[in-house]
Amino acid sequence: MNILVILRMIPDSAGELQLAEDGRSIDREWLDFQLNDFDDHALEEAILLKEAGGAKVTAVAVGEGANRVLQMAAARGADEVVALQSEEDAMISSREIAASIAAMARAKSADLVLCGVQSSEDVFGQLAPYVGALLDWPHVSGTNRIVANGAVLRVTQERGAGVAVTYELATPAVLGVQTASKAPRYVSGSKLREASKTPIGRAMPESSGFERSAEIITLRLPVQGGSGENLGGNAETVADRLVTILAAKGLARN
């Protein structure tokens, strides 16, 4: 089985985001970029499938720091790594890159395309259904378990409230991973150093093919809705206040 797994580099959303001068994008100059969490799980699922039944895993990374994450992917078990070129200092729109991914899936004779179910920059739509529809392959998003039995996939999808639905589908297919069957593994420094010799292929982007798309006019920070009370940053004072608040509401343990 040939697996193509997509790794998108996104701004660290735990960090502070500031608007750029044009008001239509975020200031990317001082941002840390990291692998989209869901894509990390997609990579893990790809490696788990390879370990379970044999597969060739091609990792495709896009965005700032793609080379670094591709070395990590190689250290974790990816057989081939490719950096998809993208416009510098622009957000990674899944709608924009879907055609490139679909083209690579064809070129690599992929049986399965895996990516994270979402990213923080996919405001114009999610990658798995875009790629699935472009290729006219079946797609399922929000998976937390993928088992391959030859060309038949058994895929479990989270539906909320703890309900999980299992589907069966045949490859070729596109899956949007929510959670890998096991938590993503760590790689040792020595493995990373070894993997740093892995040659990184390059791919040029294709046109998205969409004639009409929505467009961002302005970005803004949400108004801090804080009607709540700020207890401050001193742990001792905060603890004192919380004990009083909980007691007043009858919520201290009884």
């Binding site: 899944s94 709608r95 879907a98 179910v117 979402q118 996919d122 405001v123 114009f124 739509g125 999610q126 990658l127 798995a128 259904p129 875009y130 699935g132 529809a133 472009l134 797609h139 399922v140 998003s141 929000g142 999808q157 989270e158 539906r159 909320g160 949007g176 969409f210 004639e211 009409r212 798309s213 929505a214």
Partner: peptide, 23 residues
């Protein structure tokens, strides 16, 4: 924006060629 909607929205947008905004 549901488990189902996540798959339906971009699928429909691709096949119609229409714009899509999420969230």
């Amino acid at each position: 924006y549901s488990a189902n909607g996540l798959d339906v929205a971009a699928d429909i947008a691709t096949r119609t060629g229409w714009p899509l905004v999420s969230y």
